[in-house]
Computed example of a mutant assay.
Amino acid sequence: MGGESKQTSTTQSQTQPWLEAQPALKNILTQLQGGLNNTGVTSAENGALNTIVQNANNAAAKYAPAVDNYATTLLGGGGATAQSGNINDAYQAYLKATQPLASNTNYDPRTTPGFSDTIAALTSDITNATNGQFAAAGRDLSGYNQQALGRGIAQGVAPTIMAQYNQNVQNQQGAAKDLYNAGNTTAGIQTGLTQQDLANRGQGVTAAGAATDAANTGANATLAAEAQRRGIPVQALGLLAQIGIPIAGLGSQSNGTTTQTNQMSGVQQFMGITGGLSQLFGGSGGGAAGGIGTAANMIKFISDRNAKEDIEEVGALHDGTPVYRYRYKGQPGFQIGLMAQDVEQYAPEAVGKIGEFKAVDYKLATERAVRKVA
């Protein structure tokens, strides 16, 4: 259930707060109108934009290939591991030269190159000296001669043998240590090169973006320049409009006719009808739930939950029927009453329909509560 009402009014107004300034304002507007022909891009602006585009294209042609090559090189590792083979070859050569001594556990001085010649020379010197002494005394080749010779050789050779043995041990351990350090150094260098290779590749990813930007420099400059070519006239027109439109509106005169159509819902129409009935029958309530005097015995009240909003339960009748506070949709005032959906559960005869909404005969709906009190 719905309807509408229309209201038409004609208004006319005239304002002349700037009457004395009208000649000056018209002069300003005339000048603004003349400026409409000068909102395009000037020759100087056009030349500057063309220069920007040309410079950008030159820069792209000059630097983009170098940037692209740099990015490609970095993405390939930047040559960080190019010397890896040479470093490994050097280590292998060092290993080959050091390995025999580093892995030798035979410390016998007699296996030392040149050691036998040293011992032989030392033994010969001791023999000659000892035998010479006994020969001078006429006792050469005697038992004492042999005993003294043996003792002299032992005393003279033993320190040399011991020293050479210790030197062999020291040399072997030193070589093993040097080989170990060389291995660690080589591994560290190789690891560093690998890490640098990875770092270069990571920088290559960033440089690839820079290479793309460099290649797009000319195109981006062209787009920016064209945006300026489009934007300059629009900005100029906007400035003229900001100045001209307010001035043009000063001292204006307006006439007009307005028509207003109000669409009313079924609830609003019913509220109007019941309000009229309330006045007709002398009631004091202005709303559907507020009572309309003796008219309450003639009609049912719209109590459909679907016609209401802001619904809150505030109490109950003596028979337990809930009582609510609510507003009819589209109406500002709050009402207190029942819900048709509750009443029809125990007194369907008290519920009817007004248009699309359910309505309640409050006398029939409250009979049960009255009997409870009685």
Rank of each mutant, 00 (worst) to 15 (best):
M1H: 03
M1N: 01
G2W: 11
G2K: 14
T8F: 13
P17G: 00
W18C: 08
E20K: 13
A21F: 10
P23Y: 05
L25K: 01
T30L: 13
Q31W: 08
L32P: 05
Q33I: 07
Q33T: 12
G35N: 11
N37R: 09
T39K: 02
N46Q: 14
A48T: 06
A48C: 00
L49Q: 04
I52Q: 10
A56M: 08
N58S: 15
A59C: 01
K62E: 14
A64Q: 06
A66L: 15
V67R: 03
D68S: 14
N69H: 06
Y70L: 15
A71R: 01
L74I: 09
L75E: 06
G77S: 05
G77E: 02
G77L: 12
A80T: 05
T81M: 12
A82R: 12
I87D: 03
A90R: 04
L95C: 01
T111A: 13
S116C: 06
A121M: 06
I126A: 10
N128W: 02
T130A: 05
Q133S: 13
G143A: 11
Y144W: 11
Q146W: 08
Q147W: 08
G152C: 01
G152K: 04
A154F: 12
V157K: 03
A158V: 11
P159H: 02
P159V: 08
T160S: 07
T160H: 04
M162S: 12
A163R: 09
Q167M: 12
V169C: 03
Q170A: 15
Q170K: 10
N171D: 13
G174W: 09
K177I: 08
T186F: 03
A187Y: 04
A187L: 05
T191I: 07
G192Q: 10
A199M: 14
G202Q: 13
G202W: 05
G202C: 04
Q203Y: 14
A208I: 07
D213C: 00
A219L: 09
A219C: 00
A221Q: 01
T222R: 09
T222G: 09
A225P: 05
R230A: 15
R230H: 11
P233W: 08
Q235A: 14
L237V: 15
L237S: 12
L237R: 13
G244E: 04
G244S: 13
L250Q: 11
G251R: 11
S254Q: 11
G256Y: 12
Q263H: 14
F270R: 10
I273Y: 11
S284C: 02
G286W: 09
G286A: 14
G287Y: 14
G287K: 03
A289W: 08
A289D: 06
G293H: 03
T294W: 01
T294D: 10
M298N: 06
M298R: 06
K300I: 11
I302F: 01
D304A: 07
D304Q: 05
N306M: 10
E309N: 13
D310L: 12
E313T: 09
V314Y: 00
G315I: 12
R327Q: 15
K329E: 08
P332W: 05
G333N: 13
V343Q: 01
E344R: 02
A347C: 10
A350Q: 01
V351K: 00
K353Q: 12
K353G: 00
I354F: 02
I354C: 04
I354T: 07
E356C: 06
F357H: 02
K358T: 03
A359Y: 05
V360Q: 03
D361M: 08
Y362R: 12
R368A: 15
A369G: 02
A369E: 04
A374E: 08
